[in-house]
Design a protein around this nucleic acid. Structure first.
Lengths: 153, 153
DNA sequence: CGTGAAAGGGTTCACTC
DNA sequence: GAGTGAACCCTTTCACG
């Protein structure tokens, strides 16, 4: 929609790392006065480039120790089939990510679970119960190497 | 590490949705005085349950319109092989997520690219150049159905 | 875009229960 | 644990350079 100069990028980069920094400190970091910085930030937020701010919770601290990657195939790719599947998958709180994919599988999901027993419950009560599913394939993360909220600028 | 009561959960839930809310407003939402709320938040942050705050940037607004899911296999699973691969993959700014996996493939990556041409460049200059890689399999997201930063509380 | 100023809130103490 | 009050700091907005 618009062009971003070095200062806009610096604002985004800083807020990516620390979303709760005060405007005064942000202004100082990017070399702007507080009022100028506040104006730019307002533009970035209202134009949708910055779409929100979120606390990141530690999955481990909340006892979500397992991450599963789930590949799912549906019985056909009719619009109604996809819409019904997606409406249902949105209701499962353990599904962190869901993409409609090109290629062999139709959907790929990232699912958080507390432990294997918890995952079995999620698989049974949620994933297997999703409409139009014909194939589910789960694999498990042994270690998280990278998990960035955004692309590096 | 510790137990969280209903108020702690309300604080986390609120901050997940709006990471830049003021302490005063947060206190009002969860039914606490400002000072009590600030003290609880301090504990949640210092104990690592809340591990940070991040601005969420719109991939689309920044012209990152493609998301690829990349499965990668290495030549063996020796510790040194994994360490070298992981050190290299961390340097690529387009890699949003990287997990070491159980199962057929060794790693699964989520990669952001501006367009197909950009993805070809990333594939050539970064992914193919990663050490010990013997197999790369890319597929592309047609649509983002869910992308939550955290598990639903 | 920067400055400065003013008004209105927010944060952080020590203190109290 | 929680609430109160006061001092201090931050944010936002304005007119002006």
């Amino acid at each position: 929609m618009s062009e971003h100069d070095a200062i806009d990028l610096a604002i985004m980069r800083t807020l990516q790392k620390n979303g709760r920094i005060s405007n005064a400190e942000l202004a100082q970091k990017v070399g702007l006065s507080a009022s100028a910085c506040s104006r730019r930030l307002d533009i970035l937020e209202k134009s949708g480039v910055i779409s929100g701010y979120h606390a990141r919770l530690s999955h481990k601290a909340l006892d979500y120790k397992m991450i599963a990657i789930v590949h799912i195939s549906l019985s056909g790719q009719f619009a109604k089939t996809l819409t019904e599947f997606e409406a249902a998958v949105r209701l499962c709180p353990n599904v962190l990510v869901c993409y409609l994919m090109s290629g062999e599988y139709d959907y790929i999901l990232r699912v958080a679970a507390k432990d294997l027993e918890d995952y079995e419950r999620i698989h049974r009560d949620w994933l297997s119960a999703l409409p139009h599913v014909v194939k589910i394939n789960s694999s498990f993360a042994l270690r998280e190497v990278i998990d960035r909220p955004n692309v590096g600028l």
